[in-house]
């Protein structure tokens, strides 16, 4: 555990909590892609199946349970409790275009051809692109609420910090996981355009809106 890894995890946790609280307090999930949230729930479910088979640390176990629990709570708020506020007309990204190729890739490129390892690999690949329905929704409506941009910023920061974590681990532990690194780089790149808008607009007190 290094400082990049820990702050990355905390940034990820902050993102998840920000989104849950935003929906809960406003009693609305307007502007939030339910499809991205379903993909994240699928990511955590397929990755954390090892909760049942191995114990790494109390930190590891409790964070996994919190992440997966919050993911399902978010999906529940969007599709059940506050369903009337869900903006399905703008949440039109075709998730099968992500899930099917990612599933195929997980079968072809993995560390070990076993069910748990293929599901873990699937979760890594899927996480790298799971935010696309949300970014697509923002590009369609042309705007995002400021609190939604804070959520996205924390998610992007988490991924960027994990890249520093892997550089650290490579130098000090001689450890690297090529699957996680390549997927992590892809995921971070997807946020770059958003980071630019966040820094040039949101941090200067303006609402994030895209030119028509």
């Amino acid at each position: 555990m290094n400082v990049f890894r820990l702050t990355g995890d905390l940034s990820h946790l902050a993102a998840i909590i920000i989104l849950l609280l935003k929906i809960w307090k406003s009693r609305s999930c307007a502007g939030i892609s339910g499809k991205s949230q379903i993909l994240f729930a699928l990511v955590f479910t397929t990755r954390y199946l090892d909760l049942l088979t191995s114990f790494i640390s109390l930190y590891n176990t409790s964070m996994k349970i919190i992440y997966v629990g919050c993911a399902y709570a978010t999906v529940y708020l969007i599709y059940a409790k506050f369903r009337a506020t869900y903006d399905g007309n703008h949440d039109t990204f075709r998730v099968e275009f992500l899930v099917v190729p990612v599933g195929g890739l997980a079968f072809l490129v993995n560390h070990d051809f076993s069910p748990l390892e293929i599901l873990w690999t699937f979760s890594i690949y899927l996480e790298s692109v799971a935010i696309l329905p949300q970014l697509f929704m923002i590009s369609k409506t042309g705007e995002a609420e400021t609190i939604t941009t804070h959520y996205l910023f924390c998610l992007g920061v988490y991924r960027a910090l994990y890249l520093f974590n892997w550089i650290w681990r490579f130098y000090f532990e001689g450890f690297f996981d090529m699957i996680a690194i390549v997927a992590g780089v892809v995921q971070t790149i997807l946020y770059c355009d958003f980071f630019y808008l966040y820094i040039t607009k949101v941090l200067k007190g303006k609402k994030l809106s895209l030119p028509a």
Partner: peptide, 10 residues
């Protein structure tokens, strides 16, 4: 042996 995946990470 085959490279191990980063199971200690989240």
């Amino acid at each position: 042996g085959p490279q191990k995946s980063t199971k200690d990470e989240l």
